[in-house]
Amino acid sequence: MSALQTRLQVLPQPRLWGLWVLSLSLIVLALGFYAINSARFTTDEFTLDQDLSRHHDGIFNVVALSIGTIFSPAGGVLIIAAVSLFLLIVRKSPVNAVAFGAVAASGWLSSQFFKAVIARPRPDPALLFNPLAPETGSNSFPSGHVALAVGLAWAFWFLARKTRWARITAILGICIPLVIAWSRLYIGVHYPSDVVASLLAASAAVVLFAAVWNQYQRRVLPRVPLLGRFGPLAPTVSEDRSANQ
């Protein structure tokens, strides 16, 4: 069982991971700065929000608003905490619990960094035909809701990879962020480039975190004695050798 309890001790890490992080981050920054400096680009993007606002439907309204609540900051904290506690207490997997929570949080919090740098105003709800949940402020780019979904998608896939659940997890990990992206445009609180940037920013953050985790977690986790009371912090020597063969 301990091999499963420590399966996230080493996270998947692409070759040239630093180049991936740098490239994705530069794309996000370039898109963000272009968006805030091109009035025409913003106007063209806003036409999609306006068109969706003209075609609001009762059922879709409920779905979009419910998604907004579930993947809100409070909802994100609850989701990450619930899964992490389940892994820690029920599955007795402190390594998996910490890794899952940190992966999901890194993807989610990436949006806050780029929001601070870009500071793009949200779409003007007064210009929408039917504003469902008017939001204002300079925190439109990128979408925190979508970044949270992407962070969770990566975290769940890391848990499910090389198991029978890997395929369905990957499919859901693609579909759910796209549905959430649609819901943010449907409500009218983000521009299309906001949600696209979230996919890239959150993925860059997860790749960066995976590299840091793989480098330092073996040194850091054993220094937290409380974690060891819930389960193993490392596989046995034989399990470690098997995993590397």
Rank of each mutant, 00 (worst) to 15 (best):
A170Y: 05
L22G: 01
V95S: 11
S111P: 01
R164Y: 04
T6P: 11
L128V: 04
S183E: 05
Q215S: 14
R40Q: 09
S242R: 11
V150A: 12
A102K: 09
L148Y: 13
S110M: 13
A202W: 00
A205G: 05
N96P: 02
D49K: 04
S198C: 03
L85H: 06
I36R: 09
R54Q: 10
T6F: 03
L31C: 14
V207T: 03
F100H: 11
S110C: 05
T47W: 09
D124Q: 13
Y34V: 05
S25R: 02
F141M: 01
I67K: 01
E239M: 07
L4M: 12
I168F: 09
V179Q: 06
A201M: 08
L88K: 09
Q9H: 00
V206N: 06
F33E: 14
T43I: 13
V146Q: 09
Y216S: 15
V77Y: 15
P134L: 14
A133D: 12
S72M: 05
L185A: 00
G144H: 12
Q50W: 09
A35C: 04
V95L: 07
R122D: 07
G18N: 07
Q215G: 11
P14Y: 11
F86T: 03
S25W: 04
L132A: 07
W213Q: 09
L128E: 12
P222D: 02
L22D: 01
V206K: 10
S38G: 04
E239K: 06
F230D: 03
L127Q: 13
R164S: 11
L87Y: 04
P131W: 15
G231A: 12
V117D: 08
S25Q: 12
R184S: 00
H56W: 04
A116C: 00
S66F: 09
V21S: 10
T163Q: 07
W182V: 01
Q245S: 00
Q9G: 15
V98F: 14
R161A: 03
A133H: 15
V83K: 07
L16M: 08
R219K: 13
W154L: 08
R241F: 11
A147M: 08
P222G: 08
L199Q: 09
F141V: 02
P94Y: 02
A211Q: 12
A204N: 07
S198D: 08
R91K: 15
A30R: 08
K115A: 07
F60E: 03
M1C: 03
A234N: 00
I59G: 10
G228R: 13
L78N: 06
Q215A: 15
L19Q: 08
F113N: 02
R167F: 07
V83F: 04
D44F: 05
G151D: 04
G68H: 11
W213E: 13
L109G: 12
I67C: 02
F46M: 11
V10K: 14
G151F: 09
A104G: 06
R241G: 01
A204R: 13
A155K: 05
P121Y: 11
A197Q: 00
A201P: 06
W17C: 05
F46H: 14
S84I: 11
V206H: 04
M1D: 12
T6C: 15
A197P: 01
L233C: 10
G188Y: 10
